[in-house]
Design a protein around this nucleic acid. Sequence first.
DNA 1: TTGTACGCGTTATCAG
DNA 2: CTGATAACGCGTACAA
Lengths: 349, 349
Amino acid sequence: MRSDTPPAAGAAPARVTIADVAREAGVSKATVSRFFNHREALLTPDIAARVEAAIAALDYRPSPMAQALKRGTSRLIGMVVADVTNPYSVAVLRGAEKACKDAGYLVMLFNLGNEPEREREAIATLSSYQVDGFILNTFDHGGKGRAEVERLGKPAVLVDRRHGRMSADFVSLDNAGAVEMAVAHLVDAGYRDLLYVTEPVRNVSSRLDRQAAFHACVQSHGDVRGDVFESVEDGADALEQAIAALHGRSGSRAAILSGNAVVTLRCATAVMRQALRFGVDIGFIGFDELDWAPLVGPGLTTIAQPTDALGRLAARCLVERLQGSPSPPRQILLSGELIVRGSSQRGAA
Amino acid sequence: MRSDTPPAAGAAPARVTIADVAREAGVSKATVSRFFNHREALLTPDIAARVEAAIAALDYRPSPMAQALKRGTSRLIGMVVADVTNPYSVAVLRGAEKACKDAGYLVMLFNLGNEPEREREAIATLSSYQVDGFILNTFDHGGKGRAEVERLGKPAVLVDRRHGRMSADFVSLDNAGAVEMAVAHLVDAGYRDLLYVTEPVRNVSSRLDRQAAFHACVQSHGDVRGDVFESVEDGADALEQAIAALHGRSGSRAAILSGNAVVTLRCATAVMRQALRFGVDIGFIGFDELDWAPLVGPGLTTIAQPTDALGRLAARCLVERLQGSPSPPRQILLSGELIVRGSSQRGAA
DNA sequence: TTGTACGCGTTATCAG
DNA sequence: CTGATAACGCGTACAA
């Protein structure tokens, strides 16, 4: 089928192999391989020099594929993310990437595009590339992901979302602590009627944790009312009504706590549409720092997650396990940081 | 070194190979292989059934690594992105991912984290995994990327950023058209003093194109003034001054055109900090649609890029080329969509 | 139609 | 210290 000359630079794109290097250096393939993998088995300086020269001359680099095939290990870490569109996930990804790079691993990313049923497939695909371990920021869809990972016998670390009783490391924000911090701040500022707005909880552990913490927290404060509202994708009207009711009932003593970035967007839209003023008419704190948080109204108070640290930690955790330390599953919780802006200060702006 | 029992589920995680399937089905490896790759060479129904059963029973899946090694091709597409943090890139990525999946390809992503010098390394790494082609959304750092790709002789398609005179397909927003649309809209609305704010242009073709189009466009409108301001990362003060000067000079006839999302954020911050009101005190249009655009002031008018289509097109383009059609380099430009909000309507809100 | 044998690029083992 | 060889999992001429 392909008829004419090769595309661009006239040469054939033939990969240079270890055999080429061996020939060039006048040694055997085994020697070249040793030059890379067993520096301790001192090669004759003369030979080593020849090999090194040949490698440089040919710009040879071992094929990771062939290596993985032979070794059964790849220095690849598989990361699967529920949705690349989510800035939280991307931030974590970056942190993980850095730490992996530092440890000599490469991250192979798989995006679920918010389709939980692809989790099993993603893990299987990654595994077929012989990834050494997994970093998972996904749903726990029917436990299929967990089952697959455990079947493979490869280590995994969970980020933000715990999977049932999966015996794996878990790295996450200290959700309970963050909720307490936020609620305490709101109460201090004089808010007494709190509405926690969350995406549908489903099985997502972080959502469960935050909601549970919210309930507990409200209990512990004597005279504070606390309700929960589930905000769905197309439920703008319902959300507006809930907020209107909240404000109608308690006036400026009402405040919203938003469970994540997408909910924050919805809440901000709803509040603006009713011409309520953040801070003065209604209080607000949202999980996840947003680059536009300073811009709406008097600024939105947020709970910033240490995403970079979370990613780094997840990677480090995995790498340690990969390098043999068979410690029991760990659970690492990092504190969030409250970034106070006008939306949580009664009577401000 | 490793002393005790395997990690979790007691079994060894031994991969199931084509040999296992062959044994299970009582046929040779070749037959199993043919079952996958040459369905046309009709196998005896009996045998085919046995193979199929064995495959299902063992949950066998061919190792893409071994396949790639043997075939020299991988059904993998390498995508390198200057910065995953950029929502534009992520949106394009998603589109490309979908189209690739539909065509039976998998996307392997490499993130440069805004370090241009890693481009060569990224391409080399990807290539060592035998990717069949590239989708590039990167800088053109010293032409090293282009050189590497051409050395490899693998097809590539450029997204948003053209690389010098690289003979590759190019998919992008119609920048000239978008600028004209925006400027015309501003002029229609009565704005006469325009400031185009851009990130440092460097070698980024889309920035060059937009700036050039802006100049041309201003020329063609008789009585319109048009300046350009380069906004750098730590240059908040300079930007504020430029905007103050603009407004001081022309009052409500002044308007800003922002070259991309990060600049829009900076401009919005600067404008708010000077207590100028979008739309009434100063006009604004920004490249790239933002989910928070409706929330600041009377809403920010934006130019939405067809990111999903761009990604899909890029992928489709590449796949076509992979499947043999040796057409000359194409250049595909898609129109943007002006999303009009309050910030570009004089006297509104 | 099916099986045998070899090679893809590497590395580990075992002689030398 | 170095070289030949087998094997990793797979696809394909070639032979049967």
